[in-house]
Design a binder for these strands. Structure first.
Lengths: 218, 218
DNA sequence: AATCTAATTCTTGTATACAAGAACGTTGAC
DNA sequence: GTCAACGTTCTTGTATACAAGAATTAGATT
């Protein structure tokens, strides 16, 4: 049943890179990884190609492929881009969303609130994801939706941390409410700004977290 | 000197797909293509993987990879996304661009105008590209810049046509001027809207072109 | 004649073998 | 002791060989 081991390995490798199992610049040794996954170099090389294609690694001809963990600067840029893209989704969604879809968002928010009441970060994280993905979808542009999902997924490991900051969940929740009302009002610019702010602040919180860790390490 | 034939082949294949050499759904036969490029299946398969990763083809396990030309709906979605992303670049650039950079844009526009005066579509096309790429860069966000470049490149074969429409070059030119003045004024929203409109209209013109072709074919 | 089935052929996916460039260590000269 | 040149070893890139699933065709049955 396990057709196309190369794909499975690519997924596993992506997870490993996301999870920070490799440091920036680490060489992904073909023979070692092949041995580790119990396959030959052929499917493993295909998996490496996929990592390179998705930007998780860099390939230097005749040298090998090296993991490319985003540095602080690139991370901030990625968060900013995510914020802008979510803003775009919000802008379009404000013009196109239906009443039923709005109700779905309200329901999602209720579940977010419940998660907060239970102080369940994981649950909030999951429901938050549902909320955002649904807005991507409501942009009415499935190409844009896919692009948003791609970037969202890439930022996943970095987004998680900032929720643990004191009060961030409640703040995030109130931002959600503001977003829904902007969408309900059908106001593209307000919706865009609300979503931009909501996501951009994640990047800022992340930055805060990073610098505090750095200071602590000194 | 031709290290990594797989990459060269991938580039050639991308060009072929872009150029419309393959119809939607065509299977990319590994052995035929390998023979055509004079290599074995191994590097050719790597090239195919790259096509799949960039969305130009779809892979069905144990069946093969099939080219995936965007249909009218997806194309419109891509143009809309491009318009929104360029708008984002404009928004950020309006807040960050320097006087010198503005001068560069003015120079680029001058060359665009010259191309119009010479009725040189190709030249206009090239200078137009310079103009847009420079704005991506002036967003001050190199991650966003790369994403914009990627999509811009993907839409290249479809953008070209609409310039041939009567009066489009002149109209495009005046939009460029408006964009620069919005950037100079440092007005993010106006710049965003100007760029959105400038690119979105390309999608509409393209749509017009497509439907006129369709009608003509009937 | 149509359709289901089985066998053959074809194609993809993976393993292995081979070639060539890069890294590395050793030896020699200064 | 340092540095450079050479040779060995290691790694990547490509070719080929093999295995297994998909397509196709021929044959049998209704």
């Amino acid at each position: 049943m396990d057709i196309r081991r190369a794909d499975l390995i690519a997924n596993e490798l992506e997870e490993l890179v996301f999870a920070g199992e490799f440091a920036d610049g680490d060489r992904l040794d073909e023979v070692k990884l092949a041995a580790h996954f119990g396959v030959s170099r052929t499917p493993l090389r295909e998996a490496l190609q996929r990592l390179v294609a998705s930007g998780l690694a860099e390939q230097i001809p005749r040298r090998g492929v090296f993991v490319r963990q985003p540095g602080p600067v690139e991370l901030m840029e990625m968060f900013e881009t995510m914020a802008e893209i979510e803003g775009v989704c919000g802008r379009l969604a404000a013009m196109r969303i239906s009443e039923q879809a709005l109700d779905v968002l309200v329901e999602a928010n209720k579940r977010c609130q419940q998660a907060i009441d239970n102080s369940d970060i994981d649950e909030y994280y999951r429901e938050n994801e549902v909320f955002h993905h649904f807005i991507y979808q409501q942009s009415g542009n499935s190409f844009l939706e896919q692009e948003a999902l791609r970037l969202h997924r890439r930022l996943k490991p970095f987004r998680r941390h900032q929720l643990k900051l004191r009060g961030r969940m409640a703040q995030s929740m109130s931002e959600h409410v503001a977003i829904v009302s902007a969408l309900r009002a059908g106001n593209p610019e307000v919706a865009a700004q609300a979503l931009r702010g909501h996501v951009a602040i994640q990047g800022e919180k992340f930055h805060l977290l990073m610098s505090s860790l750095k200071t602590a390490a000194q």
